[in-house]
Simulated scan of single mutants.
Amino acid sequence: MNIKTVALALGASLVMTTSALAQEYTFKLHHMLSAKAPSHTEMLEPWARAVEENSGGKVKIEIFPSMTLGGRPPELIQQARDGVVDLIWTVNGYTPGLFPRTEVFELPTVFKNDPVAANLAMYDMFEESLKDDYKGLEVMFLHVHAGQAIHMRSDDVRSPADLAGKKLRIPTRTGAWVIEALGASPVAMPVPELPPALQKGVVDGALIPWEIIAPLKIQEQTEFQIEGAEKERLGTTTFQVSMNGDRWGSLPPEIQQAFKDASGREWWGEVGNVWRATDDFGIELAVKSGNTHTTLSEEETAAFREALAPVVDRWIDDVSSKGIDGAGLVEKARELIATNGGAS
């Protein structure tokens, strides 16, 4: 081995050693969708890289998609709370009743069509009104998707009566109440289980955003995608990226700050933009594949609003029985969504 070869080998070894020393904190982030899903490529990866950069290379976040560390999507919250993994991205509603205050943002007529405004409203309400939902966890950020739209295997939908007797998939209890208010039967399941359920006729349709069309090829299992006037939706779903509370508490201030700087108010708003853009891509894909995109008239949309008004009252009664000011949360959420409207 000549001197040049030895020098190159030593140099490479030094770079590897320096890199290993620099990455003093490694975190595992676990989630339920594939590495090709927009939630992974457009949200989780950029956020993780921002944390790493903020830390000066001391942090490494390894992302494990598609439940590759084991378990089913509803188990992600417990995995984080138990410290089985460091970080999770999950649907709050996969564990019904654990995040009652945050559910206010899922309600129809509270959330209509603006994920940016909803995310910013959650940020503004978090410390005072939502934080008690997240004991044992350190929330990095919360977000919603672009809203529940109706996807049907073979039926167009123009009125609540068109859904009577149908079976629809939904991941959350608030979504189940929406489906019941429309005269249909809710079928709870994590979204990765939806494609075979549609193919086999286990469900007639689903309440999901357009975003999920591409990663799960929903356009191949449905014929109709339906939403209200001006992209109005039937509520939405809340999500979280959270860390095990003990792991968070063990980190030095400068590492905590690296996470905080990547997870500020501006980022919560940007996540709303990500989900709006991927939603638009999803519906374009469905239409190009030959599906029918139905936009309800204002009159037809108003009929859905009227049918769904009791869902908000049901939620207020439910959380109020647990000592939570449901009416106050609805009022505050609506006010802040309106204030943050048009922030994208």
Rank of each mutant, 00 (worst) to 15 (best):
S159T: 09
P73S: 07
Q219K: 06
D279S: 10
I61D: 09
L44K: 03
N2P: 08
P192E: 00
Q219M: 08
G326Y: 04
A50V: 11
E230P: 09
H30T: 06
H30F: 03
T278D: 12
G235P: 06
P74D: 01
G272D: 12
R158Y: 10
D86I: 14
G201H: 15
S39A: 09
A50G: 03
A181D: 12
G342F: 05
L234P: 15
D204A: 04
D313W: 12
Q78K: 13
V287W: 02
A161R: 10
S39T: 06
V319A: 06
G83F: 12
A117K: 02
G342N: 15
W315K: 07
T26V: 15
S320I: 02
V187T: 00
K231L: 11
A343T: 03
K60P: 05
E223T: 15
E298D: 09
P46F: 12
E138G: 01
V319G: 04
L182C: 10
P195Q: 12
E211D: 07
P160T: 01
M122R: 10
M125A: 11
V91P: 02
H30M: 06
T17W: 07
V330C: 15
H30D: 09
A7Y: 14
G323L: 13
E331P: 02
A50H: 03
D325R: 13
I170L: 00
K167M: 13
R233H: 10
G83M: 13
G269H: 09
T301L: 07
D114M: 11
K131R: 12
V312I: 15
A9H: 11
N273H: 03
L21D: 03
W267L: 02
N244A: 05
D280A: 12
W47A: 05
I3L: 08
I208C: 08
L285Y: 07
L120C: 13
S242C: 15
E193Y: 08
Q23N: 14
E254D: 11
E62C: 10
K58E: 15
L207F: 09
P186Q: 14
T5A: 13
S263M: 05
L285Q: 01
V330N: 10
P46G: 14
H40S: 11
A307R: 13
S289R: 01
F105L: 03
R305N: 11
I63S: 14
E62P: 14
P209Q: 04
N119R: 14
T292S: 08
A303P: 01
R305D: 14
W275I: 00
V202F: 06
R247G: 01
A121S: 08
M67G: 04
G97P: 00
L198H: 08
K28D: 09
N273T: 05
A286T: 01
G328A: 10
I218N: 00
R305L: 10
E45C: 05
A20V: 13
R233M: 08
A302V: 04
I170D: 00
W89Q: 11
V84D: 06
F141Y: 12
F27W: 06
A20K: 09
T109W: 06
A229Q: 08
E335H: 12
A146D: 08
P115K: 02
K60H: 04
P196I: 00
V202A: 09
H40D: 14
A333T: 15
P186T: 04
A307F: 13
P209D: 11
V104A: 15
G93I: 04
G175Y: 03
E227Y: 05
G57A: 07
Y134P: 14
V116P: 05
P73W: 02
T222F: 01
V84R: 09
V110D: 09
E232P: 09
A35K: 07
A277M: 12
